[in-house]
Amino acid sequence: MNTTALKELLYKMADDQLIMGHRSSEWIGLGPLLEEDIAFASKAQDKVGQSLALYQLLEELGEADPDTVAFSRPAAKFHNSIFTELPNEEFDFSIMRHFLFDTAEYYRFELLSDSTYEPLQQVARKFTGEIRYHILHANEWIKELGDSTEEAIARMQSALDKALPYALGVFEPSPYEQKLIDSGLFAGEQALQNIWQDKISEIIGQTALRLPAWESIEPVYGGRAGHHSEHLQPLLDEMGQVINSEPGAEW
């Protein structure tokens, strides 16, 4: 087993889930409708919960404990895609990001359900059920907002246009891509992206939204290698403010 490649995979997944969950938690109590507030809050919890499970796998591989890893690394040591760290903006961007991200996440976990690394295989199998809800939720929102009032369609279109280059950044290839594929740890970013594009096209096709030609979109890479936007470090500072105010304390 190639531990370096595996760790890289686990870190980028865990960091994606954590940052995505953290951003979603910013909506709690402030959502557009009470019912949606609750649904969104559950998604936030699920993503943070999944990140915890992945950090625990890393701990078993010799990394520090999840609280240390999640709350005290600087931005340059985070491997999440830039997509997840962007500010929430309005509900249009937040829900569009969920749709694009959750779809990738679902199929990533599905592919990993066959991973040759058994602990990861188990985590992936365990979570596909709850992530199924995440895409049910996101798809329904996209179908409704993407085909309703003029204002909503315009908002969702511009959210889609803005999100797509970053969404493609989720599939930034790992330096160990071929090793992961050869060892059967993971089918690889390209395989995932192919599935993802089909699913995204299928849902967007049911709305009044327009999807540009995939080749015309320039992916925003960098996150996987620790090159982030200006938004990540402030997010991390905020997240770690209390826990880092008294090192060694239990909270």
């Binding site: 409708l33 009470l34 019912e35 949606e36 609750i38 649904a39 809050a41 559950s42 809800y133 049910l136 939720h137 329904e140 929102w141 409704e144």
Partner: peptide, 17 residues
């Protein structure tokens, strides 16, 4: 009970509430 637009959206909301 809950508030929603469509039956499908109501189903989505119902699960978490």
């Amino acid at each position: 009970s809950l508030h929603a637009s469509t039956l499908e959206m109501a189903f989505v909301f119902a699960k978490e509430q």
